[in-house]
Design a protein around this nucleic acid. Structure first.
Lengths: 234, 234
DNA sequence: GCGAATCATCTTGTATACCAAAAGTGATTG
DNA sequence: CAATCACTTTTGGTATACAAGATGATTCGC
């Protein structure tokens, strides 16, 4: 049962499997920022040698979700608030370009598909399935990336979505509830081929996302409290 | 004399040295697109083992300037015309964002430094030092990246500048002469803190760059003719 | 009893050995 | 004479062995 992921992908691209597994784990909040990623344990778990694990970690480091301090254990990245600000700025630039391209080339069918996606996203949030909603929300942005027809833009978008997801995991305020209507309004503008409005919607959406974080002092330590709850007297 | 580069950087970061050396070689047109990058020769040349070379090549592959087809020799990337179109689109998006940020935070001194840079660039072109001009032109874009104050944007910009330089090497029309005035006009807009105009200037500049390529049929083979000249009768 | 230094262990960095696949070469045959 | 096939050589992929450095525990001194 242990090597499910590795064997699922077979021999082909073990490194890619590991990257995918780690990316998914981060997105699903199963790997918290700061978590140690040791080469040998990962290797034995996935049934490959350290060589492959090492390659995977380097790749993830280049994608900005793993930090690779010299001669020290690799850890899931813990971006500073400044870095988070920077990556959101970059994401605004990329997503704006993506939306522009999408508006210019999207078909009716594709709009319909996106609309279904957004509806199921809202439905998920509606019934309190937060994790599911989050996943569909990411899928929405990913879909836009795919529909823009530019692999380069899409690659950067994917990277930044992942990085910002990590940032959200680090800095989110637990009580905050996200404005899910954003995606629908954005999609409406896209459907009307109103590029200006769609881009503005996207920017506002990302601004909201960023504003809902608390990027002040607390770097959100890999806190023991968040794992064990409030320390009881003893 | 062989290991000049490796020894120059010492033990520290042999991989980085190799990456830098290859990047520089590509920028200076000493490494043409399609050139094979074999692991053993590179390793012996730089005085490191294949492991390091392999890591360097993977890194460059992630940066998009080396292609790493499975089980085949690594080569300097030869982007298709479609890929070139895509990377220019991405570069427009990133450079626009960069310029916006630069306009918002640049100081007088920094403007003056940029102006000196542009002047020396034009001087180089003026006296026919094409390679020197090209280098300074890249330095100008790099400087903007640094001045925008956002490491994420800067990283993407650096990548795209390198990639597009490669594309230019592949598709440029030899007789075409570039419009060097672009940088000066752009800088004027930046100096006046006119973001709208500066961004428009940048977009137009990049459009010119792209338009001056001939992105039709000829993928510009790594032709022996271009290396040895016209084959003489024998 | 507490703090600091030293020592053992563990983890990563690099090189190398081995394996499999691909490409080039030459011979053989149609 | 040319095309195809098999072999050889080269080249990349993976695992492993070894070296250097960091981490953490234990112990000695104050």
């Amino acid at each position: 049962m242990q090597k499910r992921i590795a064997s699922a992908a077979g021999k082909a691209g073990a490194e890619t499997s590991i990257c995918d597994a780690i990316r998914a784990a981060i997105l699903e909040r199963r790997l918290a920022p700061g978590t140690k990623l040791q080469e040998v344990p990962l290797g034995t778990f996935f049934g490959v040698s350290r060589t492959i694990v090492r390659q995977a970690l380097r790749r993830l480091a280049h994608e900005g979700i793993v930090s690779l301090r010299d001669r020290r254990v690799a850890v899931v990245a813990r971006p500073s608030s400044q870095e988070v600000t920077d990556m959101f700025a970059a994401r605004r630039a990329i997503e704006a370009a993506v939306v522009e391209h999408v508006v210019a080339r999207i078909t009716r069918d594709e709009v319909a598909a996106l609309r279904r996606l957004v509806r199921s996203e809202e439905a998920a949030y509606g019934r309190g399935a937060r994790a599911e909603g989050l996943k569909l929300s990411l899928a929405f942005h990913e879909s836009l990336g795919r529909l823009c027809g530019n692999p380069v833009l899409m690659r950067y978008l994917t990277e930044l979505v992942l990085q910002t997801s990590l940032a959200v995991a680090l800095y989110e305020q637990p009580d905050r509830v996200h404005a899910h209507a954003d995606h629908l309004e954005l999609l409406d503008a896209v459907a009307r081929h109103d590029a200006k409005r769609a881009v503005r919607r996207m920017i506002l959406h990302l601004n909201d996302l960023e504003r809902d974080l608390h990027l002040h002092a607390p770097p959100a330590a890999p806190s023991l409290e968040s794992i064990f709850g409030v320390p009881k007297a003893r």
